[in-house]
Nucleic acid binder design. Sequence first.
DNA 1: GTGAAAGCGCTAACAC
DNA 2: GTGTTAGCGCTTTCAC
Lengths: 355, 355
Amino acid sequence: MTLTRIAEEVGVSAMTVSNAYNRPDQLSEALRERIFEAATKLGYHGPDPVGRSLRRQRTDVVGVLYSNPLSYAFGDAAAVSFLRGLSSVTEEADLGLLLVPAAGGASGERDPRAAAQAAVDGFVIYSMSDEEPLLRAALGRRLPAVVIDQPLTEGAPFVGIDDEAAARTSAEHPLHLGHERFAVVSFALSPDGREGIADLDRQERAAFRVSRLRLRGYRAALEGAGLPWSEVPVYECPGSDKELGRRAAGALLSPEHRPTAVLALSDQLALGVVEWATAHGISVPEDVSVVGFDDVPEAAVADPPLTTVHQDHAEKGLLAGRMLVSQLREEDGPSAGSLATRLVVRGSTSPPRER
Amino acid sequence: MTLTRIAEEVGVSAMTVSNAYNRPDQLSEALRERIFEAATKLGYHGPDPVGRSLRRQRTDVVGVLYSNPLSYAFGDAAAVSFLRGLSSVTEEADLGLLLVPAAGGASGERDPRAAAQAAVDGFVIYSMSDEEPLLRAALGRRLPAVVIDQPLTEGAPFVGIDDEAAARTSAEHPLHLGHERFAVVSFALSPDGREGIADLDRQERAAFRVSRLRLRGYRAALEGAGLPWSEVPVYECPGSDKELGRRAAGALLSPEHRPTAVLALSDQLALGVVEWATAHGISVPEDVSVVGFDDVPEAAVADPPLTTVHQDHAEKGLLAGRMLVSQLREEDGPSAGSLATRLVVRGSTSPPRER
DNA sequence: GTGAAAGCGCTAACAC
DNA sequence: GTGTTAGCGCTTTCAC
């Protein structure tokens, strides 16, 4: 069933049928009625969205690109909060949200064609590595876009936090409590899926801006307190979930030279560390303090509640949404937004047992 | 930049350029190279998705319709788990997931045009009221569709649980513990936003199938134990979150004739009830037992941990995704799927203080 | 208020 | 391997 078919049926031009749906004021009420009647009779349900998009050169859809398989996003409380904020703006603006699939084979390489084939008016790009082909494909289309957290890309509006300063502040807290033996649990530095202790070189070459900056912040804090960074083990996980945190804890919390404080780049990792420690008779915070990052809802209700860096993910989504919408409307809005963070001190940190 | 433009540049037909992208085997490697080179030079990034969709009569996108504003979905752990399961299937099948906006004014009436204007190959319809115009608009398009939880609609494949049986089982548990004074906290029975005690008539006319069935299950259990249903207050909330649960508790747990057991249609509501009780010196489960429904992650870590009906939301998403994909591929799959539930007994229920 | 013409960018079907 | 033809369903522009 098409517009034209209805037009024939009613004995008017296709244009008039189109107007019946899109500009009610352009035709008489009576004719409009007749048209809808015919449409109902023939089972026509309004102008085809694809034809319409082709003609109008817009889709009223925003594409979301996520650095991991899509299904991970729904397992990540930070991403979910972000999407909540984002969707409230896009829905308000009557835009659909297209979660772009980019399954990617076993290699973890995501298919850049996904971005090329998405019928969207703009992109929200969430936390991609600097070199991701998917990112380049998306940006290459020269549609309006907003990049979240990373990477900082020439010409692409950006929303994020001051990762370095936030990390620094979070490391200064255990430092003030008197800690001197640290370990760090990081999520991926680069998208190659490596797991284990990352040396200095790898830390500095990290393809993920966020990882790079947070490590830099920790380092600045520790060195500022006179502690040599080279002695701080940085355990890199290929992702960010509790299981990986547990594995990292297993590697880091072995009896010999156990750290008294663990800094984690995410709450998921931190929570995993706490779980592993607790399960192995190492009590938090008495034996080891743990600091997270994100302030995921679970952080507040965990046992012990997690000391962490709070960032407002929903707000981030809101801001990103607003920036994109104003680009789509060709208004000018801010080309970058920075969100505040604050350290939330809870029960997972305390002074070290023996100083 | 268009296909045709590239074709001119290279001196071949548009078809050949199309083939370069879609059927590499249909042309010589050398020509393909030349085409991509020209494309890169001219800043062409592959066939336009909308033109392609129009011609191929498919979009490779699945639309998701949610009964509330989209942003609520991301605040609802059950919906998020569902989406996680769904997205893992759609991504695997290389389909995008379009979250359809249907903002709806203050009335809460969602705009049915949203479903008509979504450029999708099929719909996943999540928990809509029987009469929702949005639902009718979506189903009216006669695209492949799967309906989740409700409503049970002629001809639309369905995925859900046996709500009545599950509710019945969950009510039998406090009954076996010896409880005799019950109250029920329900989410919406109908989409009119009403809040307060719902009488029998309203219970039975409920537009939301799930609410109707769960109440029916509770009733069957209580009446089976010889308790008169008419004396059980059913407090209806216009949605399902903790704040509403707290309000319901305020109304239900007043000192005179306080129930010893509260049955809630969702964990969010149950958790709200527990919070309110605890805050008002009523201890759970000593003074009042609370049973939830859903087994949201938070239920297990709440204080006290919540006794609830477990249903596997991610599995539901998976199943829905598979059913839709097989429809899209015109394979025949199951036309309905029912998921198992089980009662998870945790710390929020115990025998009543005085029998 | 209504309509005619044109074309958005692409690919199926079929030739050669 | 490569090209031709045709048309997917719609709406912009402009005329009446």
